[in-house]
Nucleic acid binder design. Structure first.
Lengths: 106, 106
DNA sequence: TCAACATATCTTGACAGACAAGGTATATGA
DNA sequence: TCATATACCTTGTCTGTCAAGATATGTTGA
Protein backbone atom coordinates (compact mmCIF):
# COMPACT_ATOMS: atom_id res chain seq x y z
CA UNK A 1 0.00 0.00 0.00
CA UNK A 2 1.34 3.41 -0.91
CA UNK A 3 0.61 6.62 0.94
CA UNK A 4 -1.63 9.30 -0.53
CA UNK A 5 0.17 12.60 -0.85
CA UNK A 6 -2.61 14.41 0.98
CA UNK A 7 -1.88 12.32 4.03
CA UNK A 8 1.78 13.20 4.13
CA UNK A 9 1.33 16.74 2.85
CA UNK A 10 2.79 19.27 5.17
CA UNK A 11 5.51 16.91 6.37
CA UNK A 12 7.78 17.44 3.38
CA UNK A 13 9.69 20.26 5.01
CA UNK A 14 10.10 18.40 8.29
CA UNK A 15 11.37 15.32 6.46
CA UNK A 16 13.96 17.41 4.65
CA UNK A 17 15.03 19.20 7.81
CA UNK A 18 15.28 15.87 9.65
CA UNK A 19 17.78 14.72 7.06
CA UNK A 20 19.77 17.93 7.25
CA UNK A 21 19.94 17.62 11.06
CA UNK A 22 22.43 14.83 10.43
CA UNK A 23 24.61 16.94 8.18
CA UNK A 24 24.65 18.81 4.89
CA UNK A 25 23.11 17.05 1.95
CA UNK A 26 21.59 17.58 -1.49
CA UNK A 27 18.26 16.86 -3.12
CA UNK A 28 18.98 13.66 -4.91
CA UNK A 29 20.63 12.10 -1.89
CA UNK A 30 17.81 13.09 0.44
CA UNK A 31 15.24 11.52 -1.84
CA UNK A 32 17.25 8.32 -2.21
CA UNK A 33 17.48 8.16 1.56
CA UNK A 34 13.71 8.56 1.94
CA UNK A 35 13.15 5.75 -0.52
CA UNK A 36 15.55 3.44 1.30
CA UNK A 37 14.24 4.25 4.77
CA UNK A 38 10.69 3.45 3.68
CA UNK A 39 11.49 0.30 1.64
CA UNK A 40 10.43 2.07 -1.56
CA UNK A 41 7.03 2.90 -0.09
CA UNK A 42 7.55 6.62 -0.36
CA UNK A 43 9.61 9.21 -2.16
CA UNK A 44 9.22 12.87 -2.93
CA UNK A 45 8.34 14.11 -6.36
CA UNK A 46 11.21 16.19 -7.79
CA UNK A 47 9.10 19.29 -8.10
CA UNK A 48 7.81 18.88 -4.57
CA UNK A 49 11.35 18.50 -3.27
CA UNK A 50 12.85 21.50 -4.97
CA UNK A 51 9.83 23.66 -4.22
CA UNK A 52 10.26 22.79 -0.55
CA UNK A 53 13.96 23.71 -0.69
CA UNK A 54 13.04 27.10 -2.07
CA UNK A 55 10.44 27.68 0.65
CA UNK A 56 12.82 26.59 3.38
CA UNK A 57 15.61 28.79 2.09
CA UNK A 58 13.28 31.77 1.75
CA UNK A 59 12.19 31.24 5.34
CA UNK A 60 15.82 31.20 6.48
CA UNK A 61 15.69 27.61 7.69
CA UNK A 62 18.35 26.36 5.30
CA UNK A 63 21.18 27.81 3.22
CA UNK A 64 22.58 26.41 0.01
CA UNK A 65 25.86 26.29 -1.89
CA UNK A 66 27.13 24.54 -4.99
CA UNK A 67 29.20 21.47 -4.21
CA UNK A 68 32.88 21.60 -5.04
CA UNK A 69 34.73 19.00 -7.09
CA UNK A 70 34.01 18.23 -10.70
CA UNK A 71 33.06 14.55 -10.44
CA UNK A 72 29.57 13.80 -11.74
CA UNK A 73 26.66 16.14 -12.10
CA UNK A 74 26.75 19.33 -10.07
CA UNK A 75 25.15 19.23 -6.67
CA UNK A 76 23.49 21.97 -4.67
CA UNK A 77 24.14 21.30 -1.02
CA UNK A 78 21.88 22.46 1.76
CA UNK A 79 22.71 23.28 5.35
CA UNK A 80 20.25 23.75 8.20
CA UNK A 81 20.40 27.06 10.10
CA UNK A 82 19.78 27.67 13.79
CA UNK A 83 16.32 28.92 12.90
CA UNK A 84 15.83 25.74 10.94
CA UNK A 85 16.78 23.64 13.95
CA UNK A 86 14.26 25.49 16.08
CA UNK A 87 11.59 25.05 13.44
CA UNK A 88 12.42 21.36 13.17
CA UNK A 89 12.01 20.88 16.91
CA UNK A 90 8.68 22.65 16.86
CA UNK A 91 7.55 20.52 13.96
CA UNK A 92 8.36 17.35 15.88
CA UNK A 93 6.25 18.56 18.79
CA UNK A 94 3.45 19.46 16.41
CA UNK A 95 3.60 15.99 14.90
CA UNK A 96 3.24 14.37 18.32
CA UNK A 97 0.16 16.48 19.05
CA UNK A 98 -1.28 15.76 15.63
CA UNK A 99 -0.90 12.02 16.10
CA UNK A 100 -2.78 12.16 19.40
CA UNK A 101 -5.43 14.38 17.90
CA UNK A 102 -6.10 12.19 14.90
CA UNK A 103 -6.04 9.05 17.02
CA UNK A 104 -8.76 10.61 19.12
CA UNK A 105 -10.85 11.52 16.11
CA UNK A 106 -10.74 8.48 13.87
CA UNK B 1 -0.63 25.11 19.97
CA UNK B 2 -3.09 24.65 17.12
CA UNK B 3 -2.65 22.27 14.24
CA UNK B 4 -1.84 23.48 10.74
CA UNK B 5 -4.45 22.39 8.24
CA UNK B 6 -1.78 21.00 5.94
CA UNK B 7 -0.84 18.51 8.61
CA UNK B 8 -4.37 17.21 9.06
CA UNK B 9 -5.32 17.56 5.43
CA UNK B 10 -6.55 14.34 3.96
CA UNK B 11 -7.97 13.14 7.27
CA UNK B 12 -11.16 15.15 7.05
CA UNK B 13 -13.11 12.39 5.35
CA UNK B 14 -11.89 9.74 7.77
CA UNK B 15 -12.82 11.94 10.72
CA UNK B 16 -16.34 12.37 9.34
CA UNK B 17 -16.73 8.68 8.60
CA UNK B 18 -15.46 7.80 12.07
CA UNK B 19 -18.27 9.86 13.54
CA UNK B 20 -20.87 8.29 11.26
CA UNK B 21 -19.67 4.83 12.25
CA UNK B 22 -21.39 5.51 15.58
CA UNK B 23 -24.69 6.47 13.96
CA UNK B 24 -26.30 9.03 11.68
CA UNK B 25 -25.40 12.62 12.29
CA UNK B 26 -25.30 16.05 10.69
CA UNK B 27 -22.62 18.63 9.93
CA UNK B 28 -23.00 20.96 12.84
CA UNK B 29 -23.10 18.14 15.37
CA UNK B 30 -20.04 16.44 13.89
CA UNK B 31 -18.05 19.65 14.07
CA UNK B 32 -19.13 20.33 17.64
CA UNK B 33 -18.06 16.82 18.54
CA UNK B 34 -14.63 17.35 16.95
CA UNK B 35 -14.20 20.53 18.94
CA UNK B 36 -15.15 18.84 22.19
CA UNK B 37 -13.03 15.75 21.61
CA UNK B 38 -9.97 17.90 20.98
CA UNK B 39 -10.54 20.40 23.79
CA UNK B 40 -11.10 23.18 21.27
CA UNK B 41 -7.77 22.48 19.60
CA UNK B 42 -9.31 21.61 16.29
CA UNK B 43 -12.46 22.04 14.27
CA UNK B 44 -13.34 21.90 10.61
CA UNK B 45 -14.03 24.97 8.59
CA UNK B 46 -17.64 24.99 7.39
CA UNK B 47 -16.69 24.99 3.75
CA UNK B 48 -14.25 22.15 4.30
CA UNK B 49 -16.89 20.12 6.08
CA UNK B 50 -19.63 20.51 3.52
CA UNK B 51 -17.20 20.00 0.64
CA UNK B 52 -16.15 16.73 2.23
CA UNK B 53 -19.79 15.65 2.60
CA UNK B 54 -20.34 16.22 -1.09
CA UNK B 55 -17.24 14.24 -2.04
CA UNK B 56 -18.18 11.37 0.24
CA UNK B 57 -21.73 11.24 -1.07
CA UNK B 58 -20.54 11.37 -4.68
CA UNK B 59 -18.19 8.49 -3.92
CA UNK B 60 -21.06 6.50 -2.48
CA UNK B 61 -19.59 6.37 1.02
CA UNK B 62 -22.47 8.23 2.65
CA UNK B 63 -26.11 9.03 1.90
CA UNK B 64 -28.09 12.03 3.12
CA UNK B 65 -31.64 12.99 4.00
CA UNK B 66 -33.33 16.01 5.55
CA UNK B 67 -34.09 15.61 9.21
CA UNK B 68 -37.75 15.40 10.21
CA UNK B 69 -39.43 17.54 12.85
CA UNK B 70 -39.76 21.30 12.68
CA UNK B 71 -37.85 22.32 15.79
CA UNK B 72 -34.89 24.57 15.10
CA UNK B 73 -32.98 25.03 11.89
CA UNK B 74 -33.24 22.23 9.33
CA UNK B 75 -30.63 19.50 9.47
CA UNK B 76 -29.26 17.33 6.72
CA UNK B 77 -28.45 13.96 8.21
CA UNK B 78 -25.80 11.66 6.84
CA UNK B 79 -25.59 7.88 6.98
CA UNK B 80 -22.54 5.76 6.20
CA UNK B 81 -22.92 3.07 3.53
CA UNK B 82 -21.29 -0.36 3.40
CA UNK B 83 -18.78 1.01 0.91
CA UNK B 84 -18.15 3.82 3.35
CA UNK B 85 -17.46 1.36 6.14
CA UNK B 86 -14.94 -0.47 3.95
CA UNK B 87 -13.29 2.79 3.00
CA UNK B 88 -13.14 3.83 6.63
CA UNK B 89 -11.41 0.59 7.60
CA UNK B 90 -8.87 1.03 4.81
CA UNK B 91 -8.24 4.61 5.90
CA UNK B 92 -7.49 3.46 9.43
CA UNK B 93 -4.94 0.99 8.11
CA UNK B 94 -3.42 3.69 5.93
CA UNK B 95 -3.13 5.98 8.93
CA UNK B 96 -1.24 3.34 10.91
CA UNK B 97 1.23 2.91 8.06
CA UNK B 98 1.58 6.65 7.65
CA UNK B 99 2.38 7.13 11.32
CA UNK B 100 5.14 4.54 11.14
CA UNK B 101 6.45 6.02 7.92
CA UNK B 102 6.63 9.57 9.20
CA UNK B 103 8.12 8.44 12.51
CA UNK B 104 10.88 6.80 10.51
CA UNK B 105 11.51 9.90 8.45
CA UNK B 106 11.43 12.76 10.90
C1' DT C 1 -40.12 43.67 22.12
C1' DC C 2 -36.10 43.19 20.14
C1' DA C 3 -31.29 42.44 19.97
C1' DA C 4 -27.95 39.05 20.46
C1' DC C 5 -26.72 34.52 20.15
C1' DA C 6 -26.77 29.65 18.93
C1' DT C 7 -28.12 26.55 15.58
C1' DA C 8 -27.72 24.97 10.78
C1' DT C 9 -26.48 24.83 5.79
C1' DC C 10 -24.47 26.45 1.60
C1' DT C 11 -21.68 29.14 -2.22
C1' DT C 12 -17.92 31.68 -4.22
C1' DG C 13 -13.29 32.76 -5.20
C1' DA C 14 -8.58 32.46 -3.81
C1' DC C 15 -4.50 30.11 -2.03
C1' DA C 16 -0.81 26.79 -1.50
C1' DG C 17 1.41 22.36 -1.67
C1' DA C 18 1.79 18.54 -4.56
C1' DC C 19 2.01 16.43 -9.08
C1' DA C 20 2.88 15.18 -14.11
C1' DA C 21 5.47 16.24 -17.75
C1' DG C 22 9.05 18.13 -19.73
C1' DG C 23 13.85 20.10 -20.14
C1' DT C 24 19.06 20.35 -19.28
C1' DA C 25 23.59 18.48 -18.29
C1' DT C 26 27.48 15.28 -16.74
C1' DA C 27 29.76 10.76 -15.81
C1' DT C 28 30.02 5.74 -16.24
C1' DG C 29 29.81 1.25 -18.04
C1' DA C 30 28.55 -2.11 -21.63
C1' DT D 1 27.86 5.11 -28.84
C1' DC D 2 24.04 4.35 -26.34
C1' DA D 3 21.71 3.42 -22.08
C1' DT D 4 21.64 4.41 -17.41
C1' DA D 5 22.37 6.84 -13.18
C1' DT D 6 23.15 11.08 -11.31
C1' DA D 7 21.50 15.81 -10.53
C1' DC D 8 18.77 20.02 -10.92
C1' DC D 9 15.03 22.96 -12.53
C1' DT D 10 10.48 24.99 -14.70
C1' DT D 11 5.73 25.13 -16.16
C1' DG D 12 1.01 24.38 -15.75
C1' DT D 13 -2.59 21.82 -13.43
C1' DC D 14 -5.14 19.73 -9.67
C1' DT D 15 -7.31 19.52 -5.25
C1' DG D 16 -8.36 20.28 -0.40
C1' DT D 17 -8.73 24.06 2.53
C1' DC D 18 -9.93 28.65 3.83
C1' DA D 19 -11.99 33.42 4.32
C1' DA D 20 -15.89 35.73 3.56
C1' DG D 21 -20.37 36.09 2.82
C1' DA D 22 -25.44 34.61 2.37
C1' DT D 23 -29.63 32.56 4.32
C1' DA D 24 -32.89 31.02 7.86
C1' DT D 25 -34.87 29.47 12.44
C1' DG D 26 -35.17 29.11 17.59
C1' DT D 27 -33.86 30.79 22.28
C1' DT D 28 -32.65 33.93 25.84
C1' DG D 29 -32.07 38.00 28.43
C1' DA D 30 -32.45 43.04 28.96
Amino acid sequence: MSIRSDIIRGHTETIILAHLMKGNSYGYEINKSIKEKTDNKYELNDATLYCAFRRLEEAGYITSFWGEGNAGARRRYYSITNEGIEFYKKSIEEWKLTKDLIDKLI
